[in-house]
Design a protein around this nucleic acid. Structure first.
Length: 960
RNA sequence: GCAGGAGUGGCGGAAUUGGCAGACGCGCUGGCCUUAGGAGCCAGUGCCGAAAGGCGUAGGGGUUCGAGUCCCCUCUCCUGCACCA
């Protein structure tokens, strides 16, 4: 009979909650306990509830936390809710309920589901990003950003007050574009020619302009930029939220349009965000994704003089600045390309070319990002009719516009070096532009028919001939700087973080605007600024945010002056940027965190979550953390020291058989690019026939209709026809989503936990298989039966008694203790469970089970199946929870075997096995090996060349 | 195209890092028990072969007494980025 997991699990969950079993101790109560902060990525509380992917990571971190607690560690293991943002609001609109209500419902449901899985969270620390007591501090951090700037010398954030001081002292000067520059005189440097004459001192600037300069330096600033406007969602989106030209949420098309928006100056931190990755124990692939996203490239900006008639108001020759990572190839620049949107295009285009240029620009503007990507193979562009002067060769080079150069990166203009850049090469071939080699390989020949992009030796470049690429770059940059025609420069692909959304369900900005649209912070004392109650919170469908309708709420008065509140709201990611800090001091009404507690708990020792947050949450949170660090609010430069990604859990394996358009069956191995596609709004499997190119459609076939034949699966009814076998991502539309509620009801949460951990290595992607769960169910039932017996009467433990431990069992026990601890520390939970199963199998026929073995078993099982372990532990006569019971220790002496069974190989092939005493000498063992029965025929009549004995491993005899 | 990861029985996956390939679980086969159930217990289960034995870690080559593990080449799948100058 199965043990009653439902009753047992409920009982212990209540016990843990009432007794606050997993309370983390504050620094003053912790004594000399070591600390560990074990963090899960908190869930976004969608209307769908928990899916089986959540418990995977949560169980892993829970096992680790429970293990550490038993090792005497003070563990902080909290949980909370990420609940502001688009999906919650979309759900509310769909169900016709206010997002506050749906969010409350969703949180209740998530809490119920998570608590039913028995995780050892400290529930007194629960946070909810939509709680005004929480988002008050999100707004407070925004004010920190608003009141700071990035100091270019110290490479860190400082208060705006400090900047004003510097400007007043004359340490900084202001350029015509509003950017600030070090005062060369003050710094004892020679005045830069040209530019410096345009720099002005603070005192020479009007108050209005002064405010603009300051506002332009803030880490949170407003700017008119080309943004991703998503009409389907009625809001703008960050670059990170746009995938292949569509919104990540909902998959709606996104268009670029200029709008005035809040931005966070994450680009200032690009360099530190890359560099500090080295401090982190994160998966290499994830670090690489962040490096790619930030996209740092080092090179130079070079000014090219334009060959155009000078306008009367210009006192110098107009120039175009290009960015290049290969300044060593400057001599090879044979043409120039501007992005179609580049502001100088009109200035350069000749009257003869104007029409063609305008037509091309029009064509680019209407092309979606998607089309642009699809057309990437074929270069397009038009000649402007204008020329620029190559500053090294003094030769005029034609200026083109082409959509392979983007306005958003670098300077929006490139010097094209077709000999050493494949894109430029393709373009030059199409437009018959000369190609000039200026780098040759260190050895070997220049490749024919393509660009030579690798490093080499400079040739045909007077200034740098014979230099290696690295040397030549340096020489060139020095020369450019000396001539004031260029400067070494570093560019990032990363854009500043677009931080406002035209939606209701988010944190309001603690900002008011005057009539001119200038932004002012409200005071910290006015926080939290809560969302107004609104009947109609739906998006307006225009860039006008719904909060604009809250006319009373908007009004704000200070010092007799009227202002209007900012009506944009913050994006979904704001609350999750710092939640890990609030857990440390969740109820503090005075500060966002107590510095003593912060110092004690931070940084996070282990962070477990999905890889889907690689460039969103994890980049944003690191950015905020660094700002808080610079401003002295937190003590560590990085928040998450070790990070582990759990692998995706896919749906059950599916098989698909394919048919040609005419309906005849086709084998899956004749197809390529098999994938799911939306046809008539239904997800359909399609494949392209390798030879005919026909599109073939797949249909799902049952596993019973399929068998394995060689390396592939085929139809039983038609064994010549291979079927496609794969597991898909779980999705509602596929109908392959597994609901944890159902699994817990049928098998219990201990079983679900065990199954998810037993599926394979944590980081790997793996298919769900409901059929396999029964294995873990049998294991748990076996444990119950072996220790507590079939009798479910609560006080009896008939199978356990004080008894001597048989040698074999003792060895297995100590092996298990060793292996389980090692595997938990290495997060190899699948093999730890295998070892527990082995120990349990040893107990199956033992009567009685020795008490100390039963005790140890309960403790070893506790991190994995905590409910059953507590039940066993209590029924074995222990009064208190085992949550802080010391972890069992093993005796290395108990692990050694008294006799060895050694394999004997002849020429590396296994032929026999011999059993020898563990302390036998090498000669004895070799002699025994040669004498072994099945070895004899193999050495008879042959000469033994070599006898190898690998201690405690094997014997290998080499014969001629 | 670039970067990262992976490829082991019918399935999920083990293998202390160069030393008995397939631990453990599912499934399957046979048996026992039975108030017949999706319960429990025992035995077996990589492939070929009656056996001896042979063959086996995507494919091909190499290093080694010995290779799933190290080196070279090729193929397939996944994930990310993708005209980023």
């Amino acid at each position: 009979m199965a043990y009653n997991f439902t009753t047992i699990e409920k009982k212990w969950q209540e016990y843990w909650l009432t007794n606050k079993t997993f309370r983390a101790f504050d620094p003053d109560e912790a004594g000399d306990m070591p600390k560990a902060y074990i963090l899960d990525m908190f869930p976004y509380t969608s209307g769908q509830g928990l899916h089986v992917g959540h418990p995977e990571g949560y169980t892993a971190s829970d096992i680790y936390s429970r293990y550490l607690r038993m090792k005497g560690v003070n563990v902080l293991h909290p949980m909370g809710w990420d609940a502001f943002g688009l999906p919650a609001e979309q759900y509310a609109i769909r169900t016709g309920k206010h997002p506050r209500l749906t969010t409350e419902e969703n949180i209740r449901n998530f809490r119920r589901q998570i608590q039913m899985l028995g995780f050892s969270y400290d529930w007194d620390r629960e946070v909810d990003t939509t709680d005004p007591n929480y988002y008050r501090w999100t707004q407070w951090i925004f004010l920190q950003l608003f009141n700071s700037y990035f100091d270019p010398m110290d490479q860190k954030a400082k208060s705006i007050g400090h900047l004003i001081n510097e400007l007043q002292n004359g340490d900084f000067l202001v350029a015509p574009d509003g950017t600030i520059h070090l005062n060369p005189v003050q710094e004892g440097m020679e005045a830069l020619s040209g530019q410096s004459s345009l720099l002005r001192e603070w005192k020479d600037i009007s108050p209005d302009e002064q405010r603009d300069v300051i506002d332009g330096q803030r880490l949170a600033y407003m700017d008119e930029v080309a943004v991703n406007w998503c009409p389907g969602l009625g809001t703008v989106l960050a670059n990170e939220e746009v995938i292949d030209g569509k919104s990540e949420v909902g998959g709606f098309p996104v268009e670029r349009r200029p709008m005035r928006q809040w931005m966070l100056r994450i680009t200032a931190y690009g360099d530190r965000l890359i560099k500090d990755l080295d401090l982190l124990n994160w998966p290499e692939s994830l670090k690489e994704m962040q490096r790619n996203w930030i996209g740092k490239s080092i090179g130079a900006e070079v000014d090219f003089d334009l060959v155009v008639p000078r306008l009367p108001e210009e006192d110098e020759v107009p120039t175009v600045t290009v960015f290049t990572t290969r300044p060593d190839t400057l001599y090879g620049a044979t043409y120039m390309v501007l992005a179609p949107e580049h502001p100088l295009v009109d200035r350069i285009a000749t009257s003869a070319q104007k029409a063609e240029v305008a037509a091309y620009r029009q064509q680019c503007a209407t092309k979606s990002d998607r089309d642009r990507m699809a057309d990437a193979k074929e270069k397009t562009g038009v000649f402007t009719g204008g020329y620029a002067i190559n500053p090294m060769t003094y030769k005029p080079i034609p200026v083109y516009i082409a959509d392979y150069v983007m306005m958003g990166y670098g300077t929006g203009a490139i010097m094209a070096v077709p000999a050493h850049d494949q894109r430029d090469y393709d373009f030059a071939m199409k437009f018959n532009i000369p190609i000039r080699q200026v780098v040759k390989p260190v050895s070997g020949e220049l490749p024919a028919g393509r660009a030579f992009e690798e490093e080499g030796i400079a040739i045909d470049s007077a200034l740098i001939n014979g230099q290696t690429t690295a040397e030549a770059k340096q020489t060139m940059i020095r020369a450019l700087e000396a001539e004031s025609i260029g400067v070494g420069a570093t560019k990032y692909k990363l854009r500043d973080w677009l931080f406002s959304r035209q939606r209701y369900w988010g944190e309001p900005f603690p900002i008011v605007l005057d009539e001119q649209g200038n932004a002012y912070a409200i005071s910290e004392k006015e926080l939290p600024l809560t969302l107004p109650e609104m009947e109609d919170y739906k998006p307006t469908g225009t860039p006008e945010p719904p909060l604009t309708r809250a006319t009373e709420w908007r009004k704000y008065q200070r010092d007799g002056k009227q202002y209007l509140r900012e009506t944009n709201t913050m994006p979904q990611w704001a609350g999750s940027c710092w939640y890990y800090l609030r857990y440390i001091d969740p109820k503090n009404p005075k500060q966002f965190i107590d510095p003593v507690k912060e110092k004690y708990w931070m940084p996070v020792d282990l962070y477990v979550g999905g890889v889907e947050h690689a460039v969103l949450h994890l980049l944003y949170a690191r950015f905020w953390h660094k700002v808080l660090f610079d401003l002295g609010h937190v003590s560590s430069p990085e928040p998450f020291m070790r990070l582990v990604n759990q692998g995706l859990i896919l749906g059950e394996m599916e098989f698909h058989a394919f048919t040609k358009p005419d309906g005849s069956p086709v084998s899956a191995d004749e197809l390529s690019d098999i994938a799911e596609e939306m046809l008539d709004k239904t997800p359909t499997m399609t494949g392209t026939h390798k030879t005919t190119g026909q599109k073939c459609l797949g249909r799902r076939v049952d596993i019973e209709a399929v068998e394995k034949s060689g390396p592939k699966f085929v139809l039983k009814s038609n064994p010549s026809s291979a079927v496609d076998a794969r597991a898909f991502k779980m999705s509602k539309s596929r109908g392959n989503v597994v609901n944890p509620d159902a699994i817990v009801k049928d098998y219990g949460s201990d079983c679900l936990r065990l199954y998810e951990m037993y599926m394979g290595p944590l980081e790997m992607q793996k298919p769900w298989s409901t059929r396999d769960i029964v294995g873990m169910s049998r294991f748990l039932n076996g444990v119950y039966r072996n220790l507590l017996g079939d009798d479910e009467a609560p006080s009896t433990t008939p199978r356990v008694a004080a008894a001597p431990v048989p040698d074999d069992l003792d060895r297995q026990l100590h092996r298990t203790i060793k292996k389980v601890a090692e595997d938990i520390e290495g997060m190899r939970f699948n093999t730890a469970i295998a070892e527990l199963i082995k120990l349990n199998n040893e107990l199956t026929h033992l009567q009685p089970v020795p008490k100390n073995v039963a005790d140890a078993f309960a403790l070893l099982l506790a991190p994995f199946a905590p409910h059953l372990a507590e039940e066993v532990w209590s029924r074995l006569g222990h009064a208190k929870s085992l949550a802080r019971e010391p972890w069992p220790t093993f005796d290395p002496a108990k692990l050694v075997e008294s006799v060895l069974e050694l394999p004997v190989q002849i020429n590396g092939k296994l032929r026999d096995k011999i059993t020898v005493p563990a302390d036998a000498s090498e000669e004895t063992i070799l002699a025994a090996a040669l004498a072994a029965e099945k070895v004899q025929p193999w050495i008879q009549g042959k000469s033994v060349k070599k006898k190898l004995y690998v201690p405690k491993r094997l014997v290998n005899i080499v014969v001629a």
